[in-house]
């Protein structure tokens, strides 16, 4: 559906890892505008490492990542500011500021980066929290919430400035099926109507089938992509054993 949409993220021959341990070798792929791009794979295959490299939190061992044409590692000054405003990130454990209430967490980026008045910021922050189903919990501190609620609040905070791209690290892990389905619906709606781009790291099969317009699957042994395509196509005609195992939930023999 979005094969002719402009490319927003380019990953070029990216190698990533920590010190001596190379986790990913020479990965290349593009993400297009409006896509829900899912990175999947078994635990420990480097999904989160790839994500952290894509948002510039880790220095790649080789290759580069461009978001909207700007290199995430070397961009400086105005280019860096523009780059950081382009995307929002939800970290695996939420990473909410523990000393601020949910509302204050969502307000923070709005207060720092816009000229909106207090009332407008309040309204926007409440709307974002309602979008993720957290109305009524605005005044609570992150520590008072369940893991799933913290995650949803983190998504609301990542969306505060309406970025073009949202990176979500394991958004539905630890969520109940109802909330998880609600979140999937929200992602589809935002991607479909507003043209937002999502890069989602997950290994929740129901969620993958619900939201993904395209997936890549990583593998620990091959240190790279073992499959790429639409999830239903990969499930119905798995190109290799790794993919079959993953989609059919077979254990390693």
């Amino acid at each position: 559906m979005t094969s002719d949409a402009p490319v927003v993220i380019q990953v070029e021959r990216l190698s990533a890892g920590y010190d001596e341990r190379v986790v990913l070798e020479e990965l290349s792929f593009d993400v297009r505008r409006g896509e829900v791009f899912v990175i999947l794979g078994t635990s420990g295959c480097g999904k989160t490492t790839l994500l952290r490299n894509m948002i510039g939190l880790e220095q790649p061992l080789g290759g580069r990542v461009l978001i909207g044409g700007d290199d995430v590692v070397s961009a400086e000054g105005e280019a860096r500011r523009r780059l950081l405003r382009r995307f929002g990130v939800m970290f695996q454990n939420g990473a909410l500021f523990g000393s601020l209430t949910l509302l204050e967490n969502v307000r923070l980026p709005l207060e720092e980066f816009t000229r909106l008045n207090n009332e407008a910021i309040e309204l926007i922050a409440r709307m974002k929290l309602q979008l993720v189903g957290l109305q009524g919990s605005e005044k609570r501190l992150p520590a008072e919430l369940s893991g799933g609620m913290q995650k949803r609040a983190a998504i609301a905070r990542a969306m505060a400035l309406d970025p073009e791209i949202l990176f979500l690290d394991e958004p539905s892990a630890g969520l109940d099926p109802v909330t998880s389905a609600g979140l999937d619906g929200l992602i589809l709606e935002l991607a479909g109507s507003l043209g937002m781009t999502f890069v989602v790291v997950t290994h929740e099969l129901p969620s993958i089938f619900a939201i993904a317009s395209r997936v890549i699957m990583l593998d620990r042994e091959r240190r790279g992509i073992v499959a790429e395509g639409k999830p239903a196509a990969l499930r119905d005609a798995p190109p290799n054993d790794k993919v079959r195992q993953f989609f059919r939930r077979e254990a390693d023999v």
Partner: peptide, 21 residues
Amino acid sequence: PEYLKLLERFDLTEYRAVQPL
């Protein structure tokens, strides 16, 4: 219509009472 649909998610009556922090 896509914006309208998004806007319909929010209930006017809930936000009427919103006072700034």
